[in-house]
């Protein structure tokens, strides 16, 4: 990986006021709470993500990390608080069409890839381009091939997901999301389901994407990646943001006991 570490981002100190989103902000989350039945998964989350910022969220399982990023493109609905994506509020009452429009601007990569097994690799990439964007097949094919080249698997274009390795599948999933030319990329534990030898090829692609200035939120326990690529690392536990800081400070001088415990547990081996 060849990544220059960035200076600590000015927007990385959390949110104090509930003001309207500014031009520089890509995502603003204010007082977000969510329950699954009686169980509260998110508790008063406040978070601002600026354009081009790269954020890594870590925390123990069940801490609400995945749920938080799934709220951003409303794969989960929230009960309290507000979420703004590029100035547009994502509401429970939003019309389906509005939500679909917001979603098409946000790329998402899943732990289990979620490629469409009945479609070829190229068709996985072109489906939304033709169906949502209304592109012709030829145009969509060209876009798909451009991004498949970028993730270094153009030669797999006519194969099917079932014929690819985990690392290849995840790179296809990244290409599929990039084809829509999103403003934001969300990664939900993108390397957790991969065999160890395939993790690097996926992280390399993600690091390159970060280099290109994409706004990224990555839920991951890849601490090496966080150190190299993140502008800010967020630690969540029990549905709350416990701590957030630039990677240097986060790893070397963690503030809370829970963060220290968590880091000692995942860095031990």
């Amino acid at each position: 990986m060849n990544v220059n570490r960035r200076m600590k981002h000015p927007g990385s100190k959390g949110v104090d006021s509930v003001s309207a989103p500014t031009e520089r902000e890509m995502i603003r989350i204010v007082g977000l709470s969510k329950w699954f039945g009686r169980f509260q998964v998110l508790n008063d989350i406040n978070l601002v993500v600026n354009r081009g910022e790269r954020i890594v969220i870590c925390g123990p399982s069940g801490s609400g990390k995945s749920t938080l990023i799934r709220c951003i493109n409303r794969l989960e609905e929230h009960e309290r608080g507000q979420i703004f994506v590029d100035g547009t509020e994502v509401k429970s009452s939003s019309k389906d069409r509005e939500i679909d429009a917001i979603r098409s601007e946000i790329g998402m990569v899943f732990q289990h890839f979620n490629l469409f097994p009945h479609l070829s690799i190229k068709e996985n990439c072109t489906l939304a381009l033709t169906v949502v964007r209304g592109m012709s097949k030829a145009e969509a094919d060209a876009v798909a091939m451009r991004y498949l080249e970028r993730v270094r698997i153009p030669e797999q274009a006519d194969k099917y997901p079932g014929q690819l390795s985990g690392g290849q599948k995840q790179r296809v999933a990244i290409a599929r999301a990039l084809c829509m030319n999103p403003k934001i990329m969300l990664f939900d534990e993108p390397t957790s389901a991969l065999d160890p030898e395939m993790i690097k090829e996926v992280l390399d692609v993600m690091a390159e994407l970060a280099e290109s200035g994409m706004t990224m939120i990555v839920v991951s326990h890849e601490m090496g990646f966080a150190r190299m690529v993140a502008d800010r690392v967020i630690f969540m536990d029990g549905g709350e943001i416990i701590e957030q800081n630039d990677p240097e400070t986060f790893f070397n001088k963690p503030q809370s006991d829970r963060t220290k415990l968590f880091l000692s547990q995942i860095l031990k081996h």
Binding site: D96, R97, A177
Partner: peptide
């Protein structure tokens, strides 16, 4: 997850 992936791409 299949439907999630479709939703995330903006499919209705």
């Amino acid at each position: 997850g299949q439907s999630d992936a479709g939703s995330a791409l903006g499919l209705s």
